[in-house]
């Protein structure tokens, strides 16, 4: 009796996972509108932009993971303030204000944020905010400067902000494993990987340049 209840529970869990997986992949169907008009085209371009560049992806996920390690209030202060600071960087990029070494700054952001996760560093909230804020400007600048001329600005910005927020959320979700001792070690190992990615970006920037 107990075994059958257990099995039923597992099956229900499996069904839930299947539903979740379907929900995850279902958006692929909804994307089939690119040809219809400018709005959706700009949206897809914006959505893709932060996700396609690995340098952005690792840094955004690192922000989420670090937030999860820092717990409240950082876990919600960072995702609320990041988009705003990043959009300020976007202004600088859009206006063409020269900031030298943007690519270096982005690579360094992965190194620093990865290191923070690796050491599970717990600085005061304002220092964490400043670190993340400075890098948010670099990332926003790069996006603003790279805005395609043809894209519909508002749908592009919408896709772009949502993708960035989605990457933060991914980091925060990954950070849930911080509850368990083994998970905490995994997160810190992940931080090392992120920092190594940053070193690679920096290295390839100088070799490539």
């Amino acid at each position: 009796m107990i075994a059958s209840t257990g099995r039923r529970f597992i099956l229900a869990g499996a069904a839930r996972w299947a539903a979740f997986a379907y929900w995850l992949f279902a958006p692929a169907i909804a994307f089939a509108h690119v040809g219809q008009g400018d709005v959706s085209g700009g949206f897809i371009a914006g959505l893709e932009h932060p996700v396609m560049g690995l340098d952005h992806v690792v840094a955004m996920v690192a922000v989420g993971i670090w937030g999860a390690q820092l717990r409240a209030p950082a876990i919600w202060v960072l995702p609320v303030t990041f988009p705003l600071v990043m959009s300020f960087g976007g202004i600088l990029g859009g206006l063409g204000v020269p900031i030298p070494g943007i690519e270096i700054g982005i690579a360094v952001s992965a190194i620093v944020l990865g290191a923070m996760v690796a050491f599970a560093a717990r600085p005061p909230l304002w220092i964490a905010g400043v670190i993340v804020g400075v890098f948010a400007i670099f990332h926003g600048y790069a996006h603003g400067a790279e805005l395609p001329e043809s894209a519909n600005a508002i749908s592009y910005a919408m896709g772009f902000v949502m993708a960035t927020g989605g990457l933060h959320a991914l980091g925060i979700l990954i950070g849930v494993i911080n509850k368990w001792p083994a998970g905490e070690k995994c997160l810190r190992a992940g931080g090392v990987l992120i920092a190594l990615c940053g070193v690679y970006f920096l290295f390839s920037h100088f070799i490539g340049g």
């Binding site: 705003l84 990043m86 859009g94 600005a153 910005a157």
Partner: peptide
């Protein structure tokens, strides 16, 4: 915050 950021980016670009 997302909506505000979208607005800022739109004004920044156009």
């Amino acid at each position: 915050s997302w909506i505000a950021a979208i607005g800022v980016l739109v004004l920044a670009t156009t």
